[in-house]
Amino acid sequence: MDAPSVVHAAAPPASTRIALQGINAFYGEKRALFDVNLEIPDNAVTAFIGASGCGKSTLLRCLNRMNDTIPGARVEGRILMDGTDINGADIDPVQVRTRIGMVFQKPNPFPMSIYENIAYGPRTHKLVSTKADLDELVESSLRRAALWDEVKDRLGKPGLGLSGGQQQRLVIARALAVSPAVILMDEPCSALDPIATAHIEALIDQLRKHTCIVIVTHSMAQAARVSQITAFFHMGKLIESGSTDQIFTMPKVEQTQDYITGRFG
């Protein structure tokens, strides 16, 4: 399948997967996000960029309700995923996290074998009933994460024995095994060398054909390479969002211009 043409800011995205409406976030007394409104399209990579502490990771953690696990954290506003508010009273956060996978800054394979790492999600959610089906799901997940050929002969070996880049692809495969509609990535390459980073970026480009991907990154070059939509944050506010081409070539706001050209932040 051909990569879908880049979504332009002028035209509304073909289909919105997640719509953020008036998001405010607080950690205790400290306010981390101010009235964020944003639409995140399906089958595309949306990059959140901005200086440290600008709220981009906080916003990412709102999307799968990971902030629920932090004492004192509070989120206001509506986060509509396919039209349903994920913070709704009748919504179980566990259901939300099953639909929305997450990849962290540091690769975090469980201290189990490669196979068991991938099998963890499907087993937890009883997605398969037979060992053969599970084997197949493990293989297809590892293939989709472009890791199968490197690990097919050592599935019983510890996941922590892999290199950093392989570990990160392992946890991506682990997330893919439960077929999430959205994958959130929190600076997934910041602990990796350039070669491993290139692997992950190629993988992201493959995955976006079937999933909605949101990536937080400190590297503007990475945002430019992998994303179709870019959102720039500064001190808890969404300053500007649009197609990555537009943001990097003709930003409308001076602050964005300053940030991407490296004049502050």
Partner: peptide, 25 residues
């Protein structure tokens, strides 16, 4: 904590995080 976060992000409940990831580790 990364193990717990990873398990939570995969949609595990608290008891599953403890039984399947934290205790074995």
């Amino acid at each position: 904590q990364a193990y717990r976060d990873g398990a939570v992000a995969l949609g595990s409940r608290e008891n599953e995080v403890v039984r399947k990831v934290v205790l074995p580790a």
